[in-house]
Amino acid sequence: MGSKGSTRLHGLFAVYKPPGLNWKHLRNTVELQLLKGLNSQMQYTPQEHIRFLLGPMEGSEGKELTLTATSVPVLSEHPLVRGPNYRSVKVGVGHRLDVKSSGVQVLGVGRGNKLLTDIYNAHLTKDYTVRGLLGKATDDFSDEGRLIEKTTYDHVTPEKLSRILAVIQGSHQKALVMYSNLDLKTQEAYEMAVKGLIRPMDKSPMLITGIRCLQFAPPEFLLEIRCMHETQQLLRRVVHEIGLELKSAAVCTQVRRIRDGVFTLEDALLRTQWDMHSIEKSIQKVAPRIEAELKKCQTVALCHRDPVGQPSS
């Protein structure tokens, strides 16, 4: 991507991905809109040069020829001849949403592609709202899969669901401490845990740091899940396992990401806003938050490299 007219197109921004849209198609659409915006800024100024053209001499009735200085346009610089100034722009995709899912999708453009790597290595949490439907089970844990069985759900109560969610969160909290390699008996590690700064610094299984029920109207229920290292299919599996723990069955009808690190639904650009001007404004708006979050993550990473309570070498 050229530098002129695009100096502000370096950074991270978020768009809202609707369900049914592949992330590759979303990225290609954004790239196309950015190219249109960049090329529309380049105004073509017609240039002319002097050429000596052979023509009839005045008063010679066309019998004698002479060279006449004539100004003619330079067609080699015409957009129809040269083509667009910008032919490609590199747009990277952050934590991807699968086709069935919707919500906040982070993208990077220009030097923002390096920031995508920094965000990935920061192991930030993400928030989802997940809808479940009691009473049936499918082969892929979604309501669109092949039906395996139907069950009753009259015995399921909000209290039973809350107890199961508490057990899930407790088991994942223990796993989070284990993968963070911190000794919670120390004061510094305890303070990090209180502030919610404990996180694994390497790859780990999906970790749920918070889960609660927002709505319970059998057979439907709505969960809010805060997690990291997840996939949308793993979240659907969680709904399936909750159904089994309730001595019933459940399928997932919706997975919607409402936060990805520092990006929230308010930051996500709608389809009508996928243009260069809106993207530039979004990049400028979230840049300070990204910088502050990455600085905080660097501090946390140092604490993990030198385990608290152990002498550093």
Rank of each mutant, 00 (worst) to 15 (best):
Glu245Trp: 05
Arg212Met: 07
Gly196Glu: 02
Pro200Leu: 07
Ile279Cys: 04
Leu223Val: 11
Gln233Asp: 12
Ser162Ala: 14
Ser278Ala: 15
Gln169Tyr: 08
Gly210Met: 06
Gly243Leu: 09
Ile283His: 02
Thr157Ile: 11
Ala249Ile: 04
Met192Leu: 13
Val194His: 08
Arg259Gln: 15
Leu246Glu: 00
His229Gly: 03
Asp260Asn: 15
Thr253Tyr: 07
Lys195Glu: 12
Met178Lys: 14
Ile168Ser: 02
His172Ser: 14
Ile283Ala: 05
His155Arg: 09
His172Pro: 04
Pro200Arg: 08
His229Ser: 12
Leu269Tyr: 01
Asp275Val: 09
Lys247Cys: 07
Leu269Ile: 00
Leu214Pro: 02
Ser282Gly: 03
Met276Asn: 00
Pro158Glu: 07
Pro158His: 04
Thr231Gly: 12
Val167Cys: 05
Gln273Tyr: 01
Leu234Gln: 14
Ala193Gly: 04
Ser282Phe: 00
Gln173Pro: 01
Leu222Gly: 01
Leu182His: 08
Met276Asp: 00
Leu246Phe: 01
Ile208Pro: 07
Thr186Phe: 05
Ser162Tyr: 07
Leu270Ile: 01
Ala250Gly: 04
Ala250Tyr: 03
Gln254Val: 04
Glu159Ala: 09
His277Pro: 02
Met206Gly: 10
Pro200Lys: 04
Leu222His: 06
Ile164Cys: 00
Leu176Val: 07
Thr209Asn: 13
Lys195Ile: 03
Arg257Lys: 14
Leu244Arg: 11
Glu266Asp: 15
Asp183Phe: 09
Val262Gln: 15
Ala189Tyr: 02
Ala268Pro: 14
Val239Ala: 00
